[in-house]
């Protein structure tokens, strides 16, 4: 087995794994990372196929630039979104998979036998991959290259226009927002004031610590959903236990193991269970 084939088998397997990850990860970030896996492995395969420039471009442009752009956008819009895999359109998944199998069949049917028995290889054509490609790009493909560079100018301008769109509605005044808040309170009972602060304990005071209500229950609205999505919420009851233990140690009165609090279930809503998961 040649090194080339070895690279192909290993990197091909990882690429397929990454593609499957793209299909099955719930979170966009994971999908983006698995796409990065695919791309890097493809870059390795490019390299094995005597395409040094493309391999580098794949790593630098695709994985480095484009996927970073994806991650930026995910950070902007999608970090706290989980996508359920429960299909809402009846038959969509089944038909899509069947159509995919059909496509695969067609492609395999088309590919098999359409390649020359022995690959020509690029030793002759390459003679220094970058120089040869440059000769082509700035030679016979120069017009295509110029058009694409024009596209590269235009596309960011378009992106800026899209991102900088004018306001669709007038900015709400403070009075209007206050009225809307009271209206929401009247209609749905939404609390009109500011949301509760995150919790401040002796040991921790990050925004990942939920605030406690007077009865000792967790205030679900005191932590950001982003924290929940990241599983970063601190278990305050563990913290308070720890604090009590520390107090006991400092005062030297009662060994901490003895004052283990009653196993009172202070969590009584589903949301709170979710928080403390």
């Amino acid at each position: 087995m040649s090194g080339q084939l070895l690279v192909f088998v290993i990197c091909g397997a990882f690429a397929v794994l990454g593609a499957l990850g793209l299909l099955f990860f719930h979170k966009a970030v994971h999908a983006a990372l698995s796409l990065a896996l695919v791309m890097i492995n493809l870059a390795a395969i490019y390299a094995a196929l005597d395409a040094a420039l493309l391999a580098m471009a794949q790593v630098i442009v695709y994985t480095g630039a484009i996927l970073m752009l994806f991650l930026f956008v995910i950070m902007l819009v999608g970090i706290d979104r989980r996508e359920s895999h429960r299909e809402l359109i009846p038959g969509q998944g089944v038909v899509a998979i069947l159509a995919g199998i059909g496509t695969l069949g067609l492609l395999v049917f088309a590919i098999l036998g359409s390649f020359p028995a022995q690959a020509v290889g690029l030793e002759a054509a390459n003679g220094g991959n970058v120089e040869s490609l440059a000769a082509l790009i700035f030679g016979s493909y120069v017009f295509a290259f110029e058009f694409i560079s024009a596209l590269m100018i235009i596309a960011p301008i378009g992106a800026m226009v899209l991102a900088q769109q004018a306001r669709l509605t007038a900015k709400k005044t403070q009075r209007e927002r206050a009225a809307a808040r009271i209206e929401a309170y009247a209609q749905k009972g939404v609390h009109p004031g500011t949301l509760p602060n995150s919790g401040v304990t002796a040991l921790q005071d990050s925004i990942a610590v939920p605030g406690l209500l007077p009865a000792g229950r967790i205030s679900t609205s005191s932590v950001s959903q982003a924290m929940v999505d990241r599983d970063a919420v601190v278990n305050v009851h563990a913290v308070s236990l720890l604090t009590a233990q520390r107090f006991a140690e400092l005062s030297g009165e009662v060994p901490p193991a003895i004052i283990k609090p009653e196993p009172v279930d202070l969590v009584d809503t589903k949301d709170e269970r979710e928080l403390l998961k």
Binding site: G12, A15, A19, L22, L23, Q92, I97, G100, L107, V108
Partner: peptide, 15 residues
Amino acid sequence: LAAVLFVLGAVGVLI
């Protein structure tokens, strides 16, 4: 391999 990746991408678009 390219065909497999293509189909996986296509199915991903759809589901």
